[in-house]
Design a protein around this nucleic acid. Structure first.
Lengths: 159, 159
DNA sequence: AATTATGTTTCACAATGCGAAATATATGGA
DNA sequence: TCCATATATTTCGCATTGTGAAACATAATT
């Protein structure tokens, strides 16, 4: 039992994944950072009172990994570390001016390119794409869009 | 100027990416391989007369990286290296029986989960999802088969 | 005070990924 | 034939990622 429509959709989905895959990678390289560094930098910039633990949890990396990456971001003067006064166990991470400048230079490519192309389509087509994509997301069992807007894989983990 | 439809579609796309994200990663770990190793193993299994150069090109990794990963796959007895008789510069890679067994044990999660859910939808909805996803892939500039993805970040000038 | 929980870092380790140089083989003239 | 150049792979040194286990330091609980 095999559906041609299912196969075609899978092919299309793979094209989508392929197109978005490595987006962060090229982006990071363009800014002189590694993909992970850019991810962490973004995460630090995103919220208030961000600690290594929070970043680790959001990106699903180990604490040890975050420590190492933050080390490099601090060395690059893109981030500062400050021990919290309320809870001296915590370390507060903040993006410096230079760090924010980097982020500005590294816009979310997915968003930028997508919006430009999308705007040129007729309304009915936009609606169709929206409906199809939403349904696809449901199908894949993706939870609500609560958090991290990330497009990385890992590798492999990529995949 | 911002389109609500575009934003909604982007949110849906992010949900899709999120759902598929880490798929290979989980998969690889489950088979005792790293994501990269699984990717390379699959690539070797995929074609005829596969050489390190071909793999490097397809996965967009450097030759040096492929050599290192193939080293490990060979050490694990999942792959064999043979010098080509026609062109002794080339090295032919082949998946061993054990290697193929690993691949069988590592079904494509995306495919399995997707097909099951997809089959339960009414035909018109399948068609809608297909159309939307294909259009989305076009939009993102994904090539037909294996071409280079085009979400390119133009070089950013930095002092 | 003693114990337990929480947050971060340190350490040793395996693996990625790269560019540059080294090596080996093919191929196309002069 | 001989030689230059192109192609295919490997070796080497390097920075980085990512992990778990253990070490620390500081809360919070009892």
């Amino acid at each position: 039992m095999e559906s041609e429509i299912a196969n075609a959709t899978l092919r299309a989905l793979r094209r989508v994944l392929r197109a978005t895959d490595g987006g962060t990678r090229r982006l990071a390289v363009a800014t002189g950072l590694t993909p992970s560094q850019l991810l962490v930098l973004r995460e630090i910039d995103a919220g208030e009172d961000v600690t290594p633990g929070v970043v680790a949890q959001r990106l699903k990396f180990s604490h040890a990994t975050i420590t190492a990456i933050v080390d490099r971001l601090v060395a690059l003067d893109l981030v500062t570390r400050t021990r919290s006064a309320q809870d001296k166990r915590k370390v507060l991470l903040e993006v410096t001016g230079a760090g924010r400048r980097r982020l500005v230079d590294a816009p979310d490519m997915l968003q930028v390119e997508f919006e430009a192309a999308f705007a040129m389509l007729p309304g009915w087509e936009q609606a169709m794409i929206l409906a199809g994509t939403e349904r696809l997301a449901d199908l894949l069992g993706a939870g609500d869009d609560d958090a991290a807007p990330l497009l990385d894989a890992g590798a492999i983990d990529r995949d």
